[in-house]
Design a binder for these strands. Structure first.
Length: 206
DNA sequence: CCCACAGACATAAGTCTATT
DNA sequence: AATAGACTTATGTCTGTGGG
């Protein structure tokens, strides 16, 4: 739609007052020209603003993957602005959820790394002790059996630890750890675990 | 303080397009 | 062809800002 009588080439054509001696008319003509000039500039500015908005929607449609899915039965139909906005909102919510999931995964993996590092240090100490005293206790059981005993005990402890511990906050973690130690690390309980593991291994071996 | 200006928003009217 | 819905365009109004 074009403005009636508007000429895009000469937007400021009415900007100067007309050459007339009549001051009232002169004034009126000047006012009118200012009004026209103002209207023209405003129309241009408004066009610019609408272009910017349109560009924004186009960019959204390009960036948001769910806006790019096309129904091939219809062809590459342009989505309405309302749909582009809704799909953008949905996509941002999806990204937020994904980010949260990945952060949780990273946290879990960090804990695994810490545990593995501790275990590595412990094993290195054991290996070093063996190297320092290679002949101590020739009648000792094999490394495999020792590992099985260790593994059985640690598995049992880990199961009770995993069932008792929540890591939502440090306070909660700390409270859970203390309660777990009280409940599952009593001498009597540990004794039962060790005996149970040894029995189990004995049955497997013989 | 007044005026000019720019930008944002609202609205009416026109245009385009898919559907019935 | 009629119609509905989405979109565009021009214009009016309001508000904030900066210069004289």
């Amino acid at each position: 739609m074009t403005e009636p009588g508007a000429s895009p080439e000469d937007p400021w054509v009415k900007a100067s007052p007309v050459d007339d001696e009549d001051s009232d008319y002169h004034q009126e003509a000047y006012k009118e020209s200012y009004k026209d000039r103002r209207r023209r500039a405003h129309t241009q500015a408004e066009q610019k603003r609408r272009d910017a908005i349109k560009r924004g929607y186009d960019d959204l449609q390009t960036i948001v993957p769910t806006c790019q899915q096309q129904d091939f039965s219809i062809g590459s139909q342009k989505l309405s602005k309302a749909i582009v906005l809704q799909k953008t909102i949905d996509y941002i919510q999806f990204l937020h959820k994904e980010k949260k999931k990945q952060e949780e995964e990273v946290s879990t993996l960090r804990k695994d790394v810490t545990a593995l590092k501790i275990m590595k240090v412990n094993y290195e100490q054991i290996v070093k002790a063996h190297q320092d005293n290679p002949h101590e206790g020739e009648d000792q059981v094999s490394d495999q059996v020792k590992f099985n005993v260790f593994q059985g005990i640690m598995d049992s402890l880990f199961q009770s630890f995993n069932a008792s511990i929540s890591v939502a906050s440090f306070q909660e973690l700390s409270a859970c750890v203390f309660s777990w130690i009280e409940e599952h690390c009593k001498p009597q309980t540990l004794r039962e675990i060790v005996i149970g593991v040894l029995h189990q291994l004995k049955n497997q071996l013989y």
